[in-house]
Write a protein that binds this DNA or RNA. Structure first.
Length: 563
RNA sequence: AGCCGAGUCGUCUAACGGUAGGACAGCGGAUUCUGGUUCCGUAUGUGAGGGUUCGAUUCCUUCCUCGGCUGCCA
């Protein structure tokens, strides 16, 4: 595992913390938390938050908790809890013994609610949900008080007790904070504190039938854990006055909420709701489909934790809504894997080549460098013989200008092997080349020529008799618009799905040494890109995912000249 | 419309009253047994107006644009 070379960059949150440290606020303690709701898989946007929270703790000698914000039993599941733990660990972060659940605090939340009632700051409201909406007013008009707003403390206490005991049905009543129905901030117009949910919770079972709302619970969770800096995304900015109100009225330890802009990526949707739809509607194969921006998907695709961490460092942290170019993520992966991934030769779309002047039955073991960027990764031996496969794209009968590859009469280098010249093209009835007859120069063994003669093209290849079959999965963006939400009138993001986001090449040929490699090994297929061995691989049947292609200058030239 | 927040190269992000810088993407070139890597070079930016100041991306002000907020979701 290599260390990120990207140095931590400062940003406004770190500046706030540095100042707090200077002022000796919180006894110079820094304690953050990552508080996912277990209602879906983590995605690259969460990675930003994880890197931020755990990264800050590390940089300032503080601590970071992993806390599940599981206050809504109808949406949350154990499967998600497990996947989240796995993903955070995989990203390289350690919460040590500080794994917490909001549901562990339910009793404390209940006591706090009681306190609010006793202080005349909360009441049980029997308005229906529709009525509450009506009474709340609008963005421009103040709300009006509920007729139940002035129930006595004793009455509220008794009613809340009944709520807790299950004497009311869902929706019959709620507990509300008594704040200000005319506040310009709608969150302050007597927000809900507790609602009745007769659902079984994945951790507390049927012990409770009332569940606290986020605004009430979250600050208390932070307070209980003595969090110093409660970092969340921008949409909670309007909730901060409420966050502060609860903590102040309850007179408990008061963490500081700080909001930052969530990550958006081009060609990607990031909301859990939409990702859930892709999964539920079988548009992708699951949460870990390599086209998903989930941590599980990126992992299966072949992304490394190092690349993701570097990316999160490079994008910065700010308060303005922004959309990062997917190309930056890809750059981070290439940069990481270029240094670390062993090279291998894989022919994705094979074209047979017979080297007519190479002895039949002869096999040579040729030496190949595993990684030119890191000689300590050593060498391997690759079998060479009379009949080999090259890439179909590496031959053209009528090549355009600047085509360096094989064509009739042209000479190219076979990587690590010999120079060959194409003498004859054998075609099928439709005119498609099916086999090339070539001759090799025995004096160029290893890919060198003594006479200083140069060849422009170098091709990868595999020996037909030694090659191993493989399935290769080529991924493109799941969406064909930079902003998938940019859909026609009346259509949604699904109308922007890229029909070519997955291409399966079933009959590729790879060099034999890859048989021994374990799943999830990252490799560079020479001249193709970075690939990883998919867990679907079975004995005798390798499956590779392309994580990201190599930069392809030739493809770019072709694109530019065709325009 | 009310409240809150945000506007700096194409994108992301620095500059905290004193030379608008970096990264990615782009373009051009060199090197190369990967049309990869590496190296070198290059273009593009402070939303608009007014003010304060010797000096404004930075402070004030008006406007404009964008985002969030009217769940018993988080």
């Amino acid at each position: 595992m290599s260390e990120e070379k990207t140095q931590p960059v400062s940003h406004f949150i770190k500046e706030i913390i540095k100042k707090d440290l200077e002022d000796n606020k919180n006894g110079s303690r820094v304690h953050t938390r990552f508080p996912p709701e277990p209602n879906g898989y983590l995605h690259i946007g969460h990675a930003k938050s994880i890197c931020l929270n755990f990264g800050i703790a590390k940089e300032f000698n503080g601590l970071c908790n992993l806390r599940f914000d599981d206050t809504n039993p109808v949406k949350e599941e154990l499967e998600y809890v497990e996947s989240i733990k796995e993903d955070v660990r995989w990203l390289g972060f350690d919460w040590e013994d500080r794994l917490y659940f909001a549901s562990d605090y339910f009793e404390q939340f209940y006591q706090a609610a009681l306190q609010l009632i006793k202080d005349g700051l909360a009441y049980v409201d029997h308005l229906t949900a529709d009525q509450i909406r009506e009474y709340r007013g609008t963005l421009t008009q103040p709300g009006k008080p509920s007729p139940y707003r002035d129930r006595t403390i004793e009455e509220n206490l008794a009613l809340f007790e009944k709520m807790k005991n299950g004497d009311f049905e869902e929706g019959e009543c709620i507990l509300r904070a008594k704040i200000d129905m005319a506040s310009p901030n709608i969150n302050m117009r007597d927000p809900a504190v507790y609602r009745i949910l007769k659902a079984s919770h994945h951790r507390t079972g049927d012990k409770w039938c009332i569940y606290p709302m986020y605004d009430f619970a979250h600050g208390l969770e932070d307070s209980i854990e003595k969090i110093t800096h409660s970092i969340c995304t921008l949409e909670f900015e309007d909730h901060r006055p409420l966050y502060d109100w609860f903590l102040e009225k309850l007179n408990v330890f008061h963490p500081q909420q700080i909001e930052f802009a969530r990550l958006n990526l081009t060609y990607t949707v990031m909301s859990k709701r939409k990702l859930l739809r892709l999964v539920k509607e079988n548009i992708v194969s699951g949460w870990d489909d390599p086209r998903m921006p989930t941590i599980a998907g990126l992992r299966r695709r072949g992304y490394t934790p190092e690349a993701i961490r570097t990316f999160c460092e490079m994008i910065g942290v700010g308060k303005s809504e922004s959309t990062v170019d997917l190309a930056l993520l890809e750059y981070c992966l290439r940069e990481d894997l270029n240094k670390r991934a062993p090279r291998a030769m894989a022919v994705l779309r094979p074209l047979k080549v017979t080297i007519t002047n190479y002895p039949e039955g002869k096999v040579e073991q040729l030496e190949a460098l595993n990684n030119p960027e890191d000689e300590s990764m050593g060498v391997r031996m690759i079998p060479f013989s009379r009949v080999i496969y090259i890439e179909q794209d590496d031959f053209m009968e009528n090549p355009p200008k600047k085509y360096f590859r094989l064509s009739p009469g042209a000479e190219v280098r076979l990587k690590h092997a010999y120079y060959i010249t194409c003498d004859e093209v054998l075609k099928d009835s439709s005119g498609q080349p099916v086999e090339l007859l070539c001759s090799y120069d025995p004096a160029t063994k290893g890919g060198w020529s003594q006479d200083g003669r140069k060849v422009k093209g170098t091709l990868h290849w595999v020996s037909v008799d030694h090659a191993v079959d493989a399935e290769v999965r080529i991924y493109e963006n799941l969406f064909n618009k930079p902003n998938p939400e940019d859909a026609e009138e009346g259509k949604d993001f699904l109308s922007n799905l890229n029909p070519n986001s997955l291409e399966i090449i079933a009959d590729s040929k790879v060099e034999p040494g890859l048989m021994e490699m374990p799943a999830r090994t990252s490799l560079q297929f020479l001249r193709h890109g970075y690939f990883t061995i998919d867990p679907d691989s079975k004995n005798g049947k390798l499956v590779f995912n392309r994580a990201v292609s190599l930069k392809d200058t030739w493809a770019k030239i072709q694109r530019n000249t065709s325009e």
